[in-house]
Nucleic acid binder design. Structure first.
Lengths: 162, 162
DNA sequence: ATTCTTGCAAAGCCTTTGCAACTGC
DNA sequence: GCAGTTGCAAAGGCTTTGCAAGAAT
């Protein structure tokens, strides 16, 4: 978490419960839902489903793989999580209470660095207007080497030349 | 192909052959390689591996699924194709002789609309500089409904209200 | 002749799904 | 009690890989 969090009036759990209850066919709020929201909003920023499953198990919580996948989808619909597609894998991060941003992804250490760029939002809206395109979302990822990995590669190269 | 093509001095096939021949371990230029480059640069702009396999078959060319995947990877390394990751699937498009651009992807008809935005490149470089990030590439996709699909949805909604 | 490439089928990875048992409301 | 949820295991979609046979240089 690099960026400042926003003020929010409800806890994530309350918001999820509300989302589930509303709608034409109310959905139920289960123990598994509660455990997942509690865990996710106590820690993470970026995570893949598989990582989450491992960590949840280590925490002693019992939720099946299928339920984790199903609940992640609901959390995205509820506006609590954002879904990022990086490589072939879906990653998730907090959406509720956290500002929109883009990512630099290190191809070596897989670190994800968040950034915001002032003009980006206006740019996106302008492009959509020009093409009469009704935007639903976007993904913007810059791949490469982070400062640390780049530095260590430089070091290695210097040593190799000796 | 919406954007103007660039002047290039070599044919894609020549460029691929050259790429394969150079390097510490020269690779071979096979009939399958030639057929794929010929086919891809005679037609497509955007395509997934599976589409390509179907079309290649219909054209009467015989190349196995494994070889298509392996050759696509080489074509990307050679700088002839760019790889786009959209959803869980990899798409490919011409890189050689075609300018850098971004995509609007319609979630209904899966149309891909290309766009260029003047300030984008400078923006990316600026962000990388700030984070001392050594960029290798980027992907920028805006999801939503294209003008056509949006229009037809409007129509339908209007009819539903009658 | 040597080394790289092909084709096949099998495995891999991540994610989704059918179904019977279960549980929130 | 009714409808939605869980867990399991199996299937799904896309991509990669091991290996023996084949082809380019």
């Amino acid at each position: 978490m690099d960026l400042p969090t926003l003020e929010v009036s409800q806890t994530p759990k309350e918001k999820f419960r509300e989302y589930l209850a509303s709608g034409p066919r109310p959905q139920r709020f289960t123990r598994q839902h509660a455990d997942m929201v509690d865990y996710i909003f106590s820690k993470h920023n970026h995570f893949a489903a598989d990582q989450l499953i491992d960590e949840i198990r280590q925490e002693g919580l019992r939720i099946s793989r299928a339920t984790v996948y199903r609940t992640l989808k609901k959390l995205v619909d509820a506006g609590l999580l954002r879904e990022l597609e990086i490589g072939q894998v879906k990653y998730y991060e907090h959406d509720y209470g956290y500002p929109q941003h883009e990512h630099l992804v290190c191809q070596k250490c897989h670190k994800m660095i968040e950034f915001q760029y002032p003009g980006l939002d206006a740019m996106i809206r302008e492009v959509c207007r020009q093409h009469q395109f009704q935007m639903d979302g976007h993904s913007f990822v810059i791949r490469g080497l982070c400062a640390d990995c780049n530095r260590s590669r430089m070091m290695k190269r210097r040593l190799d030349l000796v």
